[in-house]
Design a protein around this nucleic acid. Sequence first.
RNA 1: GGAGAGGUGGCUGAGCGGCUGAAAGCGGUGGGUUGCUAACCCAUUGAAGGAGGUAAAUCUCUUUCCCCGGGUUCGAAUCCCGGCCUCUCCGCCA
Length: 425
Amino acid sequence: MLDLNFIRKNPEEVKRAVREKHERVDVDHLLRLDADRRELLHQIEVLRKQLNEGSKRVSELKRQKQDAATLVEEMRVLSDKIKGHEKRLDPLTPEIDDLLLRIPNIPAPDIPKGEDASGNQVVRTWGKRREFSFKPRPHWELGASLGILDLERGAKICGSGFPLYKGIGARLERALFNFMLDLHTRKHGYQEVFPPFLVNRASMTGTGQLPKMEEDMYRTSDDLFLVPTAEVPVTNLHRDEILSHKELPIYYTAYTACFRREAGAYGKDTRGIIRVHQFDKVELVKFVRPETSYEELEKLVKDAEEVLQLLGLEYRVLKLCTGDMSFASSKTYDLEAWAPGVEKWLEVSSCSNFEDFQARRINIRFREEPASGGKVRYVHTLNGSGIALPRTLIAILENYQQKDGSVIIPEVLRPYMGGVEVISQ
RNA sequence: GGAGAGGUGGCUGAGCGGCUGAAAGCGGUGGGUUGCUAACCCAUUGAAGGAGGUAAAUCUCUUUCCCCGGGUUCGAAUCCCGGCCUCUCCGCCA
């Protein structure tokens, strides 16, 4: 969330962000409630001061064995008065908090204006388009004929959108996330964590999935949520903590399965495994000093890009425009891999700097060096996919397919595949 | 799931309903001492909000916070109720 103080001072900027991100929050209403609340709070504080002083005098009188009955009676009246004020204050705070939670983060200055995905900017591309002497087939055909992807049986045991990988396909899935975790931990300096796949409501609110996206989440009868991304458990690792400046920056990487209902997304990319309800993903999460967060974002993107480079997959990097960015982000890059079978760019990673938007919700701060005053400040949080599997798997199958329907395994994955070089029937 | 114990500052850990935002120790920071290191000595060291003040900061005043939420009381870390979490034992179990 944004700093209420910032909203007071920059209401127009906040309203613009609300518009640009297609949100609906009444900022003026929020400011009115806030003014009311502060006025009431002030009155209560004045009264409470009187009460505290009075109570102290009662205590003194009693110690001197003097009669305090009149004063006690006075204090009782005062106490009731405070309670009356508090009754009026009570409903205000939750309402303000709720509004605050619904105000999106403000896009960074260099973010292109735009209504939707068409306004995104291509920042760079990597790799070259493969030439095929035949018409490349889509992954669902390859997967079925190779016996590595069984969507029918996945649907039987759970429902559509829950893919079943079999045999060498299952191994390929496992090889992919192991390869990615190794790369990020060994080469890029991330610490591996393996978090719970279920999280509570506070965690979901902390990273910004709630209250806005509740319909898209799977929820259990215990009011727990299946993680839509490892970002949620991993970012919440340090909730309500004050970190030492010595600990920063902190880099984590985590594999989790991810669960998304994608309510309202029906009819889009329904074939194959482009859009599914359960998928695997390796996530990168950073906690950094505010001054370094944009630099750290560039590094994070590079770390994700390297996965695609090592896999030999053609991709492009997009800078998202205001209308296509997520609620909590101030700057986002997407990575899209080319899939020749479906003839589409597929989003395999989304890397964002949230500045202190999440840190404020989750209350993650750090203490400055004594030389800088030892002040407590919010950290900046970042995360990005490093990277998401099903679409990467699609890109591999479709890019590395051969005329006879077999698929060559990218070299970097072979050590994870027991040396298998090609998947064939 | 059953029985018991407990949740206090960065950590360990005291705390009679008022003199406790909190003893003591550790840690951190500043300084001193010392061939170096270690040790020792002194001082200092929680957070959030509001009002005032300032060019800005230092600063002053004030409210709140001892897991969370209610309640009793003039007054709650301390008493009562509910919840959450942790630990120990028993049961069950991959």
